[in-house]
């Protein structure tokens, strides 16, 4: 496991897969100035050829003309490289498919460079700090042994469903979960869905018991940790 100290010493190495030269240049220049190492590949073919080296994060444009982004996403996943996919289209279905195939996060163009950087850092953040069965994320502590979650050092009173949903997010703070993924996981085997226990209502109540930005709604896709 990589601790925070290791992260600070190590420069983050990024593979930028983007065919528009001007966009690539601007992203590269910005990230460079913030101390990231950036290599670019204008095609999937060139990106594949660069995979003998290791990268921490790949930024993958999923609309490149040469072939299928899905194959590359699978290759990157195999190599344990984290991925943020970028797209000009608001094609939720395709984004959801890429997330299901292992992409960690996505950005629709145009995006602000600051946001790109924040997302890279979020994806790189090593998953919480574990002490025994406890997982910490920001102000949240998940105690799996006691099946308890506390927020800002206070234990919060959660229903079993709320606990299950929130602990999934704490365990995967960098991932976007699609609505269907969540419904499949937690709602599939429930009898009649009770009004108070719908996905939207459950998220709303978790927010009410912690803070409004603990889980963020990703419009048309799903939810992510704040």
């Amino acid at each position: 496991m990589i601790g925070k100290a290791d992260l600070m010493n190590k420069q983050i190495k990024i593979l930028l897969i983007e065919d528009d030269r001007e966009i690539a240049e601007q992203i590269q220049r910005y990230l460079h100035s913030r101390d990231y190492i950036v290599e670019t590949a204008p095609t999937y073919f060139e990106a594949r050829n660069k995979l003998s080296a290791f990268y921490d994060v790949a930024l993958v444009d999923i609309n490149l003309p040469d072939g299928n982004a899905g194959d590359l996403v699978l290759r990157l996943k195999e190599k344990g490289i984290r991925m943020i996919i970028t797209t000009v289209k608001n094609d939720e279905n395709f984004i959801v498919k890429m997330l299901d195939q292992g992409a960690d996060d996505f950005l629709t163009k145009p995006f602000a460079l600051e946001i790109l950087r924040a997302r890279i850092d979020a994806v790189m953040r090593t998953i919480s700090v574990m002490e025994g069965s406890k997982i910490t994320y920001n102000d949240l502590v998940l105690d799996q042994a006691k099946a308890m979650i506390s927020y800002q050092n206070h234990q919060i009173d959660l229903t079993s469903l709320e606990y299950a949903v929130l602990s999934l997010f704490i365990q995967n703070p960098n991932r976007v979960f699609t609505r269907d993924q969540l419904l499949e996981r937690f709602w599939e085997n429930r009898d009649k869905v009770v009004n108070d226990n719908t996905l939207t209502a459950t998220i709303k109540r978790i927010r009410a018991k912690t803070s409004a930005d603990i889980i963020i709604t990703v419009r048309g896709i799903g939810y992510r940790m704040g």
Partner: peptide, 13 residues
């Protein structure tokens, strides 16, 4: 799905 859920979600956005 529940109409209430649809409205909850739409109102949030």
């Amino acid at each position: 799905f529940e109409l209430a859920e649809l409205i909850d979600y739409a109102l949030e956005i």
